[in-house]
Amino acid sequence: MNRPLVCVGALVWDKGGRVLLVRTTKWRGLWGVPGGKVEWGETLLAAVQREFAEEVGLRLHDLRLAQTQEAVLSPEFHKDAHMLLVDFFAGTDGHEITPNEEIEAWAWVTLDEALTYPLNTYTRTLVHLAQREEA
């Protein structure tokens, strides 16, 4: 029996106040934030820190829960999936990206600039939330 996957991701600010966007192989050319599946026995915080280390080589600090979203058979995702997306806000002192094989491109941008990118709908929601919190 298939069950929903628990996934984590984070909108991460650098010291200059810009956020990291990535284009991955999994979202049909759309941009989003690094993240991935929570492993058995792993906490949500440990999972998001591991995913960022693996996908882009960044260490995170000041993590806080942003929102939870549900992606059920999203046509934006590369395959049929039911995902519970647990999103965080975080900071990083790093800036240099070391991409793994999933990351096709990346950019450090302002929140306003982020909205000019072809974002997946889940990341667009996260960016809008960040803008509301900054207002």
Rank of each mutant, 00 (worst) to 15 (best):
L60D: 05
L44E: 04
T24Y: 07
I103V: 11
E96M: 02
T116E: 14
L20Q: 08
L126V: 12
G36A: 07
D80G: 03
T43R: 07
A47P: 03
A114T: 07
G32F: 02
E76N: 01
K26P: 00
V127M: 07
D112M: 06
F88M: 09
H61R: 15
A66D: 12
Q131R: 14
W40C: 11
T25E: 10
L21W: 07
Y122D: 04
L84T: 12
Q49A: 15
R3L: 14
D112I: 08
L65M: 07
E76Y: 00
H78K: 08
E76G: 11
L129Q: 15
P118G: 04
A105F: 09
V48D: 06
E42P: 03
I97Q: 00
R28A: 09
A10H: 03
L119S: 00
W27V: 13
R50P: 03
V109N: 08
D14F: 00
W31Q: 09
L115V: 01
G9L: 06
D14W: 01
L63A: 00
G41C: 09
G57T: 05
V38H: 06
E133V: 10
P99E: 06
R18I: 03
K26F: 12
G9H: 00
K79H: 10
C7L: 13
A135E: 10
V109P: 06
W108S: 06
T116N: 13
E102G: 11
L73E: 13
P34F: 11
H61Q: 13
W106V: 00
A53N: 07
V127S: 08
L65Q: 02
T25M: 05
R64L: 10
Y122N: 03
